[in-house]
């Protein structure tokens, strides 16, 4: 099928794309849903943002997150302390859900994007690129770091009346991480990545057939 046609995810309308793309959002003429975003330099930006995100993520897991002090007693919490306590109390379902949505999924998403984008930046298409991109798209809704930030704010307000809360280094790193990831999310668009992969696949096939012919 011609690559200048695209069908809307929401309403199934076939839309013809202009042959020269301008940066910005393209909307479905029927329902107004965003078809895709054309942002030049997306790969470079994603590369930079996700290196930053990786560093910030490690920082926010490394240092103390919050400290809570009441009458001289203090308890310190890291990013994953809650998981530990939940596991000790045998609330396995909550522990697993917490670990998945705040650590495993966001972390693997950052790593997968780096694995995909870093070679593309240097002009190569990684061997397992389709699987990376597939996994990235499937796990994205289950990473909930931004929701977690709101949860942190709410519980700070809840606890601040009972004692004093001391924000740790991690909290700042975490807040920065949310900003970086949010920006990365707004410019992320799978279409150009899939097109790069398809092009590389076709070239690879052509090469293989060429060798067989010799």
């Amino acid at each position: 099928m011609s690559r200048h046609l695209i069908s809307c995810h929401e309403c199934d309308e076939l839309c013809a794309l202009p042959s020269v793309l301008r940066p910005g959002r393209y909307k479905c003429p029927n329902c107004g849903h965003t078809l895709f975003r054309h942002s030049p330099g997306m790969i470079e930006k994603l590369y930079a943002l996700h290196i930053a995100a990786l560093i910030l993520f490690i920082l926010s897991n490394w240092f103390p997150f919050l400290t809570f002090e009441v009458f001289g007693n203090s308890s310190e919490a890291n990013f994953t302390t809650a998981v530990q306590y939940l596991y000790q109390e045998q609330d396995y379902l909550l522990a697993v859900a917490l670990l998945m949505t705040t650590v495993v999924v966001p972390m693997s998403r950052i790593i997968l994007i780096l694995l995909l984008v870093a070679p593309l930046h240097y002009g190569k298409v990684p061997r397992f690129a389709p699987y990376y991109l597939k996994t990235i798209e499937e796990i994205t809704p289950w990473g909930m770091l931004d929701v977690f930030l709101v949860g942190v704010l709410v519980s700070i307000v809840k606890l601040v009346k009972m004692g004093s809360i001391i924000p740790g280094t991690s909290l700042w790193a975490f807040a920065a991480l949310i900003l970086v990831l949010a920006y990365g999310q707004t410019i992320f668009d799978p279409h150009p990545l899939w097109e790069r992969i398809e092009k590389a696949q076709k070239e690879g096939q052509a090469e293989r057939f060429g060798e067989a012919g010799r």
Binding site: L66, F68, V70, N73, S75, A77, N78, T81, A82, V83, Y85, L86, L94, A97, L98, T101, T102, M144, V147, F148, V150, G151, V152, V154, S155, K158, L159, I165
Partner: peptide, 16 residues
């Protein structure tokens, strides 16, 4: 999910 997270953060912080 906010509420679940609030509970989990409270668990982590109030632990004396």
């Amino acid at each position: 999910m906010v509420d679940v997270y609030v509970v989990s953060i409270m668990i982590a912080l109030v632990h004396f």
